[in-house]
Design a protein around this nucleic acid. Sequence first.
DNA 1: CTGTTAGCGCCTTCAC
DNA 2: GTGAAGGCGCTAACAG
Lengths: 355, 355
Amino acid sequence: VAARLRDVADLAGVSPGSVSNVITGHPNVSPAMRTKVQAAIDELGYKPNLLARGLRRGRTGTLGLLVPEINVPYFGELTHQIVEQARTRDLTVRIDETSGERRRERYLLELMTGSGTVDGVLFSPFGLTGPDLVRLKPKVPVVLLGERATSSRLDHVGIHNVAAAREVTKYLIDSGHTRIAAMAEPERMRAPTSRLRLKGYRAALISAGVEVDPQLIARVSRYQRQDGADGMAQLLNLPTLPDAVFCFNDLLALGALYELRTHGVRVPDDISVVGFDDIEECRFSDPSLTTVAPDKAAIARNALDLVSARVRGSTEPRRDIRIAYRLTVRESTMAKPRTADLGGDDGMLAEINAN
Amino acid sequence: VAARLRDVADLAGVSPGSVSNVITGHPNVSPAMRTKVQAAIDELGYKPNLLARGLRRGRTGTLGLLVPEINVPYFGELTHQIVEQARTRDLTVRIDETSGERRRERYLLELMTGSGTVDGVLFSPFGLTGPDLVRLKPKVPVVLLGERATSSRLDHVGIHNVAAAREVTKYLIDSGHTRIAAMAEPERMRAPTSRLRLKGYRAALISAGVEVDPQLIARVSRYQRQDGADGMAQLLNLPTLPDAVFCFNDLLALGALYELRTHGVRVPDDISVVGFDDIEECRFSDPSLTTVAPDKAAIARNALDLVSARVRGSTEPRRDIRIAYRLTVRESTMAKPRTADLGGDDGMLAEINAN
DNA sequence: CTGTTAGCGCCTTCAC
DNA sequence: GTGAAGGCGCTAACAG
């Protein structure tokens, strides 16, 4: 029932090849041919079969995107950027969710890279380790998003987690906090992201001559709001409260704010809270949340640049691109009496450049 | 460089047809053949080319999903449900963003339904009107999500907006509120969703003998948090404050909470706030948000059931499925003195069944 | 500039 | 139970 290219050719009284030339905008086509063919296309409502075209061309104009969960705001926002950027390059995106499970990540990655349906893959790994990635022999280029599993030979786009975490912690120290807690994943999960941020956190404390108190590192099993609330509950049980909490993502921080509220602990008066990712919600929470804001548009742009170049056959050495970030200061942190240079005690919205 | 089915056949010393039989799990295959072929598949790391398979079979096992913006929490959560449900049926999902623009919606819908890349489409329309949809002659089944544009002949899955809005409004009236505002899209946008919810809102007021005051209907141009803040600012300029605001989605309500906070208006003491959609964020906001909770998993399930049936060739009459919803009462609304039957003035978390 | 031809990789009759 | 053959719809290479 669907019109095929041949039907168009028959109706226009020309050869299939000429129809193809018109459709693909081939240079050598006479105006007469063009109008004749276009008329037939319009009359039949012809749409090219992209499967057939992809099979023939060997390329589909589609990229795969693998993220843990699309309903997690950070991934929703990043995906949005990627889809928008892809559109400007006439690429479409096929999205799949890995649930962050190693098995499923591997399965989907193999499926996507092997089935001919996508020209390249953007992959935000979570449970997959470096060795897993080395073992993989993808038939299409793969670019890693976020923290790359170690020892991989794949292109990578991310931010400098150690530096960012160090900067957050230094900011908290400089603004007078002395008992700075962190909220991270359990060590056994060996999540590179948590490890790197913890490293930056420790480095800042040490270089400021502050003791690293293991009790102040709350361990949460996942990265959702509820986990942040649970982690905060742990910290609230300590004999002495921390005066700041650096949560390794915004959802944890938002959950922490919730828990603090139910316990009547004031933020930032009694305790400062910092997140990571700068999801939209941070600007409207109560209090609004100080956080590390990676340039998501730049992540998307660079990732697409990289994968596009590889699709076009680039064989230059592996790239590891570090994207700019900013420490965005909002209401949830406040300068303690000791230092006053960072300004007022009310809802001032300042942005500090991350150099 | 990629192994093809024929390579597997050659290596195993059998015919391509037999390899195909093994891959597709055809019943009549001898165990010997199966092991022999499987060994060759493993050795070559063979993966079937899904483009070729789709072209040959005429079906791809892929569904298209068209939503306005994936970074909007409601769509992120709904998409998540759809992807998960699809997985249990061995379907994959190709997602595209329409930005809610009519032109783009039409373009993507035509592209998706005409290109042979998907077996069916789930479409959450925003700007497209009924006539647009009638004009369309899709080659694959389309199921509408959310509010269907009128006079369409397509299957539809949604909730009963009029009833839900009426119930929210009635709940506010019954709990003692007398000046109940609404926050909706401008009339000129003719968004069916806003129209229907407004209808329910008005119906409830009228049947309770409360005057419908046009001043109490704030009009916002979009559906994001900032728009909710802007809409609330309008309402705060009224000579007399409303004592409740029914926002037509959660982001608006969350923006309204933000604006109220900056003006020192207490929620729910001074004013009650209600949202719509029950996005995850509602449970952790300050105060947590009373909202209408549609059963998103059921929406996903029913939409997939419908589209799958059509893909399998079902020609039964158009279905219009109404999904269950609940009014979920949280901290942002409170019974006013006049009535006490709905409970306390603190953060009780109650759920009231929606009929 | 236009027509003809030969597959892209796979699945599914149809013989055997 | 297995092999052979044809074609899904399209494009690119080549001949005219």
